[in-house]
Amino acid sequence: MTATQTRAEPRTAASAPTPRAASAGRSPEASRGVGRPNFLAGLGGWVWLAIIILPVYYVVITSLKKQSDYFSTNPLLPPTNPTFENYALVLENQFVRYLINSAVVTVGSVIPILLVSFMASYALVRGKGRFINGANTLFLLGLAIPIQATIVPIYFMISKAGLYDSLLALILPSIAFAIPLSVIILNTFMRNVPTELFESMRLDGCSHWQMLWRLALPLTKPALMTVGIYQGLQVWNGFLFPLVLTQSPDNRVLPLSLWAFQGEFTINIPAILASVILSTLPLLALYLVGRRQLLSGLTAGFGK
């Protein structure tokens, strides 16, 4: 057996993955990596764990320290007498209000994003004509535009529209900038819905509106999850729009509140870090409950 033959073998397997190969992937002894243990990879894995976990650990233990202890104890040792007074201080400072604002902006953005992108994707994949092609090209171009670049005119438009310093000012541009990527992820899934299904529904006399909800919706659900989770995270964690488009504490969202706490509490680092933890808790709770769905949903549309 020559070297060229051995190398050619995997390539044919790649171009035509047979059903047999796919089912073999599920049997435990065939799964990759389980052979000899890979010590080098294991070592790298633990090192990366340390890199990821150290800042998290530091933030958690510091947030439980009294301010005086912060200055006097070893920064990497947990507090001997943990306290929740930093958390109380953050909660007293309108934290719940910011949390609600963030929730309103996120839900208020994600639902319209899903709705308009889903409808658009249906027409872009199933429809034809110059108008639809033009829209497709426009969304593709939109992917390449950095949001930051247009912040000055957006600020101008929002102030002229009298929306400055309102939650709606955050929602409207957030929807617009989420549309290109959302539509493109949904398109890949929409294309995989067999044409025959649409045609048979059509013969039953269904309108496009009915096909959209009864056929396309259930079959593109994983993509909608991806889009919802990804864009939800983007909006929830967004900082630039709140920074530029809002001002009063009444309309402050969480990421901006962290920055504001940093200015207010100045050297009270434990309190600032408590605000970091509190702002992360809602997502962390979500992660603990639905980690699998969250992670697979996050990339189901990107892996394609």
């Binding site: 829209a135 247009t150 005119p153 409207l172 290109p180 496009h208 959209l212």
Partner: peptide, 30 residues
């Protein structure tokens, strides 16, 4: 036997309106 002209362009309209107003117009605006 059934006529299928594909879904109408109106399905794209809401996404397009949002995108044009808050992304294309600012792009010209900048």
């Amino acid at each position: 036997g059934a006529h299928d002209a594909g879904p109408s362009g109106w399905f794209v309209a809401p996404a397009l309106v949002f995108f044009v107003i808050f992304a294309v117009v600012p792009l010209v605006g900048v």
